[in-house]
Amino acid sequence: MRITLDEETCIGAGQCVLAAPEVFDQRDSDGIAVLLTETPEEDQRAAVADAAIRCPALAIRITG
């Protein structure tokens, strides 16, 4: 599983951090989401899928 995050699209709502705190964080400087890992462990799949569907900007893509 590989995650991509479009920082330009991100609006800093923080939904991904709530859904998958082990994979996503927000930068202190601008609140935009950052990936803690691009290739999370398989046990994070459900949480990451939840993050992707909750993201109001549809800025998260999951491949593999």
Partner: peptide, 10 residues
Amino acid sequence: RMLTPEFTVK
């Protein structure tokens, strides 16, 4: 973007 850092989850 000027406001988002004020309302982060953290």
